[in-house]
Write a protein that binds this DNA or RNA. Structure first.
Lengths: 360, 360
DNA sequence: CTGTTAGCGCGTTCAC
DNA sequence: GTGAACGCGCTAACAG
């Protein structure tokens, strides 16, 4: 009848000491079978529920991991979260989720909060780029809370990371487009304008290495062009805001060029829908007039008319791996930081053809 | 240099009592400006971080809410989670997320866990149907942890709930299809077979009222048919497993009937892609041969050929409202349980036409 | 204004 | 086998 029976109420009600109750309920130490039974039934009758907060206070472990990502409502992250939290849960951990919307300030606040809540570890898809401050990562480290980086690494520091072979997969796909005869390939979307000097020519690979997912993909595009001796035409790269509307506008712009693209490579789902929208608007047909290739396979891509070729990421697996790395760290398996690079898979469908007017 | 400076280490280092430090750091009570400054800088130098666990232990509040849903990787829930957790975070709460995959056992475990972790409230998209046990909801109640039901209510008990006007929106859309001349309307997908006797004729509305999202939608379908004097043909309803493959198989089956459907209503995204896949397979064209209507608008539906008509739910708003209701409860605003029913919006696109062979 | 002290609920050592 | 007692870090009375 009391509202939140504690361990000592159970003790009182069953006529034993608190420690005995703690032992039976905790399943450790010696307890006579008789009293064990009794305590158990009494606890059940009283509706006893252990207070995990108090447990955490004395054990120093919350059995909770923090998951900091850009945006849960983005299908990519939705799948990542699923993989990560399922794996965590299967190991007795639950997950505190925070979305940062690519805002470094929010990320810093989130990590601090998670540290304060004493999570046992953090999986982080960081918003940090280039030379941004990483004090929050150090705070976690200082509290010996392990961090695993997901989808985006921070080359300056060594953390366990799980990433995708972005650069290589884009390079290969673009090369394939080129071997189909395309030389004018529109690209939606590119990295932030602020990073432009970094991926454009004149930088060492080492400097370029401190790039993000989008930077990596852009590098793949550049690699492929360079490999085939095609010069970069910056007019074919979408810069600026990253949303469907802007993608549509930029693709429209490109289609209006004197020498328009005969193919488009889209690095995200929204970039793809924006592109498709612009192509639709221009009454062009795929793949007769333009070829299309996207990133992140979705079920609708297969039923689209025509079905769209996609680079498919092992999205859920990304989360699973991150959780596993984190759990190993939490369990004190202290090796050197590991970086796992997962492979993408290209799903060829009929959205790719030969350009109408092959350049001489 | 010590690893996790506590409040008393800060006290020692700044030559004052623990309480004074607690007051300055906690920002309550009186502290002279001079000592305040000193304590603050000392705390900063030491890299002091409050232990939220300890705080929660003494205040009895964790500033955390639990969010129990079916599946984060489902775009619908992804958006719900976004709305709910953003709203919570804006109010200083973070969210513990658990997916149940529609398994009641997982749900029960999740709720118990959240209770044990002493979350301040729970938002629950329950897997409970019909007369399933709801002991876990009572456990939470007993610990005076408020619960807000989301997307699915449990009519037997009174909880704050945020739901969609499923029945009405489906009824209206089906009626519209009928007024276009369709009388054979395929339905993918229906409620579990086990519930069949409940939504089929012969039951009072009260009994039917204890249905789920899918049951509600099915009722809308039945309402519309009944309103136009069309008899239910159970062959036009997809039952059984709920996934894309089975949807495709069922739609193929329906298309093979002597008197096949001239329109399809799809209650979920996967049901829709499965349906589109089957239609593609059969080389039928939309809307000439068959009309299509879906639930849950997605960005690709607008760029599809032809663009697909959709019932759009205020998905994110669902999460926002749930959070707001929960926060009000947490803040002790104790009114009677409220049920908020949100409106859907129908987005008419060109996937709907007149049937080729109008029934006489 | 400031320091002392008693909890919060549980894990755990150490005698009995 | 079992119970008493201390500590985890912090909040909140209560004296001074």
């Amino acid at each position: 009848m009391t509202r939140n029976p504690t361990i000592s109420e159970v003790a009182k009600a069953s006529g034993v000491g608190r420690a005995t109750v703690a032992r039976t309920l905790g399943g450790y130490g010696y307890v006579s079978e008789a009293t064990r039974k009794r305590v158990l039934t009494v606890a059940d009758d009283l509706g006893y529920r252990p207070n995990r907060l108090a447990q955490s206070m004395s054990t120093g472990s919350t059995r909770t991991i923090g998951l900091v990502i850009a945006d849960v409502s983005n299908p990519f992250f939705g799948d990542v979260v699923r993989g990560a939290s399922d794996t965590a849960m299967a190991n007795g951990f639950d997950t505190l989720l925070v979305s940062t919307y690519e805002d470094v300030g929010s990320e810093v606040a989130a990590v601090k909060l998670l540290v304060d809540k004493r999570v046992d570890g953090i999986i982080l898809s960081t918003a940090v780029r280039g030379m941004d401050d990483i004090g929050h990562l150090q705070i976690a480290e200082q509290h010996s809370i392990p961090i695993v980086l997901l989808d985006r690494s921070v080359p300056r520091v060594q953390f366990d990371s799980v990433i995708i072979n972005n650069r290589e997969s884009v390079r290969n796909s673009i090369s394939a487009l080129i071997s189909h005869g395309h030389t004018r390939i529109g690209y939606a979307w590119g990295p932030p304008v602020a990073e432009r000097p970094r991926w454009q020519s004149g930088l060492s690979d080492a400097a370029r290495n401190d790039l993000w997912t989008d930077g990596e993909r852009m590098m793949g595009y550049l690699d492929a062009l360079a490999g085939e001796g095609i010069e970069l035409d910056i007019d074919l790269v979408m810069l600026g805001e990253k949303n469907e509307e802007h993608a549509a506008a930029e693709v429209s712009r490109m289609l209006g060029l004197a020498d328009p693209p005969t193919a488009f490579f889209c690095t995200e789902t929204e970039a793809l829908t924006g592109t498709l929208s612009a192509i639709r608007e221009a009454s062009l047909s795929i793949p007769k007039d333009v070829s299309i290739m996207g990133f992140d396979d979705s079920s609708w891509a297969a039923v689209f008319e025509p079905p769209i070729s996609m680079i498919k990421q092992p999205t859920r697996e990304l989360g699973v791996r991150a959780s596993n790395l984190l759990l190993e760290r939490i369990n004190g398996i202290a090796e050197d930081p590991r970086i796992e690079e997962l492979e993408t898979e290209v799903i060829w469908r009929s959205s790719i053809g030969r350009p109408l007017h092959v350049e001489k």
